[in-house]
């Protein structure tokens, strides 16, 4: 199991991999926002949670269409399906590798961007924890979309359309966790986010495996 995880993370980290791309995209979007809405720090702090969450989701979706497609095209997916691992395990591991290569680095970078958006320290912590809890759900639900669009030639185009509405709760609760600190009114966002993320991570591999399975029958 760890063999597949290690291989996927390695492939993502090497030249031409997706890890750096996602980070650069995340930082790039975060830089454009102040240019668009103005640089007053109080206003930026107010929207930081939402903006960074949206940017993180988009950055994580960026390389998602290749999650299974690269292995599908070069025949690796056939071999993975025939390996001792079940397809459900393959789906879960590949989603985890995607998280390690994108969600985790994004989370680690987020406090820096949060400082640039004028977030106070306690809100930075909330942003960090919310991304840490919530980005696994992005990878897990994204993997479902990647599996479904596996045989679509330009799957990258419809993948966001499929996945984004499903991720609305993650963005809502994630940004809500930052607002909780800013407003000082407890709202339970982190608990809700954790529950959502947990369910997404537990249930998604089954849907992903079903989607991959039907695409292998070609």
């Amino acid at each position: 199991m760890s063999a597949l995880l290690l291989r996927d993370v390695r492939l993502a980290a090497r030249a031409g991999g997706s890890a750096m791309l996602a980070l650069a995209f995340f930082a790039g979007v975060a830089t454009l926002v102040p240019l668009g809405v103005g640089a007053e720090l109080p206003r930026l702090a107010r929207i930081a949670g939402g903006v960074l969450w949206v940017a993180a989701v988009l950055a994580a979706l960026l390389a998602l269409d290749r999650l299974f497609q690269a292995d599908f095209e070069d025949g690796s997916l056939d071999l993975l399906a025939l390996s001792p691992l079940s397809l459900e395990a393959v789906a879960a591991i590949k989603a985890s590798a995607h998280w390690l290569a994108t969600g985790l680095p994004l989370t680690l970078l987020s406090p820096l961007l949060g400082v640039m958006f004028g977030l106070p320290p306690r809100a930075l912590l909330a942003l960090f924890v919310s991304l840490l809890l919530g980005t696994p759900a992005v990878s897990a639900l994204g993997a479902v979309g990647a599996g479904l669009t596996l045989s679509v030639r330009r799957g990258g185009l419809i993948l966001p359309l499929i996945v984004l509405p499903l991720l609305a709760p993650a963005v809502i609760f994630g940004a809500g966790a930052v607002l909780e600190v800013l407003d000082g009114i407890p709202n339970g966002a982190l608990g809700l986010l954790g529950a959502f993320s947990f369910c997404a991570c537990v249930l998604s591999p089954f849907a992903t495996a079903a989607a991959v399975r039907l695409n292998l029958g070609s």
């Binding site: 492939l11 090497r14 031409g16 025949g75 690796s76």
Partner: peptide
């Protein structure tokens, strides 16, 4: 049955980076 199969397909499943 698949778990007993050794497969040699059209594609070689060799990653350029590995």
């Amino acid at each position: 049955r698949g778990k007993q199969v050794g497969w040699l397909g059209h594609h070689d499943a060799v990653k350029p980076q590995m």
